[in-house]
């Protein structure tokens, strides 16, 4: 019996459960924008989170991640959004490694000075290798400054090299796939966000093979309904204590390590 599933089925959300979506976007996506203004982003994101029982979301600004756009503008939007919902929006800054290294590092310093402790990468969409020189410099920056890194994807070979070279940094695969299982088992500083469209039973198989401690709830909201990721966890045939880890406790630990966990959540859930 799962109290978490029972409450979710009954339309009550997730009472008493810390829920942090570790993978969301606001703004433009290939098919269009989900919110037009920062004001709409704040109101819309809060409405979705409230409706689903989600405490907070790790957010990256969309639209400015494509080659040819200025990623700094996306980070500006993210700063404005975070200022409106500081206890519910956890910003993940973005840089395009195709930029000059100096500019990449300048932007990292800028966003860190603004309070951002986390980085989201999408080099797979930017035709840049996960272990290219600018990203290796970024990982060094993150190690020196104690930052958390989420990436749409790395190859297994890249992750194996990077995670071993920077053992103090926690790295999160943006989308779980079974090819990551061995890395997740072997490398203590590698995690996977669950959001992905796998086949029947894919996440349960992963949790059985790896253990629940390495998986983090995510959804690619707010383009997607945030419940796409919640459903994956609550319907999984695993004990409630494992669901709690995946829904928020593990993400909270990683965020707290880099100083990014909102104080209100720490207080509310006695973390």
């Amino acid at each position: 019996m799962s109290e978490i599933l029972d409450n979710w089925r009954a339309g009550q959300g997730l009472p008493g459960v810390l829920v942090i979506d570790g993978h969301t976007h606001v703004g433009e996506w290939p098919h269009g924008a989900n919110f037009d203004t920062v004001q709409e982003m704040a109101a819309g994101a809060a409405a979705v989170m409230d409706a689903n029982g989600v405490d907070a979301a790790c957010v990256m600004a969309g639209g400015y991640m494509w080659n040819g756009t200025d990623y700094r503008l996306g980070n500006d939007i993210l700063m404005e959004l975070t200022a409106r919902l500081p206890q519910r929006i956890i910003p993940f800054a973005h840089v395009n490694p195709n930029d000059h290294l100096d500019a990449v590092l300048d932007e990292l310093q800028r966003v860190q000075a603004a309070g951002m402790r986390c980085i989201k990468l999408l080099n797979a969409y930017q035709d840049y290798p996960g272990d290219g020189p600018n990203l290796m410099a970024l990982y060094r920056f993150a190690a020196d400054r104690n930052m958390l890194i989420l990436n749409h994807s790395w190859t297994n070979q890249e992750m194996d090299r990077i995670a071993r070279q920077f053992p103090s940094v926690d790295f999160i695969f943006g989308h779980y796939g079974s090819r990551q299982d061995e890395l997740l088992r072997e490398l203590p500083n590698v995690y996977a966000n669950i959001w992905g469209i796998g086949s029947l039973g894919f996440l349960e198989r992963g949790i059985r093979g790896v253990g629940p401690e390495k998986f983090l709830f995510g959804s690619d909201a707010f383009m997607n309904p945030i419940s796409v990721g919640i459903g994956l966890v609550v319907y999984a045939d695993i004990p409630d204590r494992h669901k709690r880890l995946i829904l928020g406790l593990t993400q909270a630990r990683l965020l707290e390590k880099v100083g990014a966990l909102p104080a209100a959540l720490k207080e509310q859930y006695k973390l």
Binding site: S199, V228, G231
Partner: peptide, 12 residues
């Protein structure tokens, strides 16, 4: 596709 992804999307 894993059905758990879709079950609650209309509900919530």
């Amino acid at each position: 596709y894993e059905p758990a992804i879709f079950i609650a999307n209309v509900q919530y």
